[in-house]
Nucleic acid binder design. Sequence first.
DNA 1: ATTATCTATAGATCTATAGATAATGC
DNA 2: ATTATCTATAGATCTATAGATAATGC
Lengths: 200, 200
Amino acid sequence: MRRGYATGQARRERILAAALLEFAENGYRGASLARIAERVELSQAGLLHHFTSKERLLVAVLDYRDEQDMRRFDLGETTGGVAALRALVDVVEHNARVPGLVQLFSVISGEAVTPGHPGHEWARRRYRRLRAQVAAALRRGAERGELRAGLDAEAHADRLIAMMDGLQTQWLIDPERVDMAAVFRGYVDDLVALLRPPAS
Amino acid sequence: MRRGYATGQARRERILAAALLEFAENGYRGASLARIAERVELSQAGLLHHFTSKERLLVAVLDYRDEQDMRRFDLGETTGGVAALRALVDVVEHNARVPGLVQLFSVISGEAVTPGHPGHEWARRRYRRLRAQVAAALRRGAERGELRAGLDAEAHADRLIAMMDGLQTQWLIDPERVDMAAVFRGYVDDLVALLRPPAS
DNA sequence: ATTATCTATAGATCTATAGATAATGC
DNA sequence: ATTATCTATAGATCTATAGATAATGC
């Protein structure tokens, strides 16, 4: 499997990091390959030697970030129920410390609602995967008797994800106003109370 | 107060409508004045006679839409408590019928998380206003004894708005997967149960 | 007079490709 | 040989302004 020389590999990593910043700051459409190239001290043509096109570069950045986040976000096969919900609160608390990454996802998800946007398919897959993961964790909690039996796992998963995204947008636009982690924690607390199995 | 000739007034309205479509489809950065001008059968310079710059045109579109929506969204001085929460469900149900408008707000809000974006201030003001309106309606409900007394009105308002926004994004990206209105209604139902005053 | 248009154009971008040269490592 | 770079450039944009001409309505 050809992966190029070591020097090229290192350069590609630097390009991904620089592209992430540029896309987060300007979105896909507002981003400039020339500016990215400048940040890694490379000509713009040199950049395209490594990534062929702006579209491919965006997809590479998104996949790269997804890979990193999967680990943190992965609720494992064992975690479930209340522990899983608490893990989501931890994710939000962590996100409050990395505004740059949060901004990348917010900006790109916003742009990607447009069909034809190079991030459209990525976003669709991502939301489906997240929903499946969260729903599975909730269901494990129900099986163990930790959460109410009849719960609608998919609907709650959609809501948890929507809540995270929506609060992120508010927080990025007006950081002083919104304590993203606290408001999300309040949601999870209410949810835990609501989904507690009826006293036997 | 100079408002120009009747013909100009009519042209400006057409421009706003066309610009709305273009911004919704391509975001601020991806939008093209030439394409907007084409849709209203005007030269691109002719368009700029009416709106001076691309930035001003975006702001005009956003203010124009806000004005329209204020009526629908206005929870009045009388509505409060559970009725206000039901009114939000109506809003979401209505939004599910106008994907174009929803897309405008999603795309621009996403872009506007970047400081320096011409929609940044608009988004900030908008979220503050929405929060104040929703929180006030919840508080009226509490005063009337319809909702639990000690409720955190601001936090619940932030969450309601975040939920609406987050579900909109999911719905726009994958309309077949998400029944936006139904999932939101589920949230409101849970919230009504949670905020019901303790039995006296 | 004021307003609504137009054509023409300056001046900055932008992405992607062609083709040459230098470095790397089997 | 393959990979990593570069310069140069084609070909499309883009926004905003200057300056001329036509229509509108006090």
